Simulated scan of single mutants.
Amino acid sequence: MKLNRDGSLTKYMLFVPTMVVLISMTIVPFIFSLLTSLTNYKATEPEKWNFVGLNNFVRAVTDQDVQASFINTLEYVFGAVAIEFVLGILIALLLNRKMRGITFIRTLLLLPMMATPVAVGLLWRWLLNTDFGIINYYLQSWFGITGPNWLAESKLVMPVVIGVDVWQWTPFMVLSLLAGLQSLSDDPIEAAWMDGASPWQLFWHVTLPQLRSIILVVLLIRIIDAFKSFDVVWTLTNGGPGISTELLSLRVYRVAFKFWETGYASAISWLFLIVVILITSQFIRFLYRETGK
């Protein structure tokens, strides 16, 4: 092949390996999972499979365990992200000022976010242990309160799981929103201040509108990431007690690697993907509306 003067052949030679890796690592498994979802394929019996059409999808929609996992996932995602956003914007506003030690405080905020999810789950599982956990110990020694079994009571366990996620990922909200606050122009704020606007009016009518695009992007990232949560919940509660904290990601794992129903697990995964796409597409629509594109 003849090399053109503009080096176009070289560009194509560099482009092809990247496309091969992309196709082999993402697109091929993507298509394979879709085809598998239309069969009764089991990993333990790979030679015994039949085409079942949309039966797996119908089964997933009517499966009470899948429905419960879906509700748990929505509660977990939107509960955690909402709390993280409120705390994130409040802390970012507090840190968006000149004070002594502010750099050290910002550095400390990174620590929970830098910990691996498995380590976070194991850490909080130990802290919340009924018999020798530090939290129950201080509740008893300081306040005379007998701490509950945090991870075994169905009414407490989901708020606890959400709280652990808030502890780990609120720093992400803080740092992202703080960067947005520091990138804003001071002119509109100073003009509103000169006109006699109160601090609340400054925030609600001047600062918040300028942050809308950043807020939507940060919320979109966190919602997508929260939908994928697996490690923390698995190590913290294993989806229990019962299935009270079983997210859809855990349900897919159980179906695929405990019951070995690969085709059915693929169908649940695709329904999961459709839900995430529908939710995130609304955020993207709002984002484009705000940016005027």
Rank of each mutant, 00 (worst) to 15 (best):
P117K: 05
G144V: 07
I102R: 14
Q140V: 05
S154H: 13
M113P: 05
L108K: 07
M114S: 10
P148Y: 03
R125P: 01
L109Y: 07
L156C: 04
F132Y: 09
L128S: 01
A115Y: 00
V120R: 00
K98P: 04
F104W: 15
Y137V: 03
V120D: 02
M158I: 01
L109F: 11
P159V: 09
T130Y: 14
I135N: 02
L111E: 09
T107D: 09
T146I: 12
T107Q: 12
N136E: 03
L128A: 02
Y138N: 13
P148C: 06
L111Y: 14
T103C: 10
L156D: 01
T107W: 09
K155F: 08
V157P: 00
P159E: 06
E153S: 05
N129I: 03
G121P: 03
T107I: 12
A119L: 03
K155C: 04
M113F: 15
V160N: 07
W142C: 13
L128C: 01
L127S: 08
R100E: 12
A115M: 12
Y138V: 15
V118S: 05
D131Q: 15
L123R: 01
G147V: 03
F143T: 06
W142H: 11
R106P: 02
W126G: 06
L151T: 00
R100P: 13
Q140Y: 09
T146E: 14
P112L: 07
L108H: 07
I145T: 04
L122C: 01
L139H: 02
L123V: 11
N136H: 01
G133V: 05
Y137T: 05
V118N: 08
A152H: 11
L139Q: 04
W150L: 08
T103R: 14
Y138D: 11
L151W: 00
M158Y: 01
L123N: 06
L151I: 04
K98H: 08
I105Y: 10
Y138T: 14
A152I: 09
N129W: 02
V118I: 14
I135F: 02
L110K: 02
R106L: 04
D131H: 15
P112W: 08
V120E: 02
I134A: 12
Y138W: 15
M158T: 01
M158N: 00
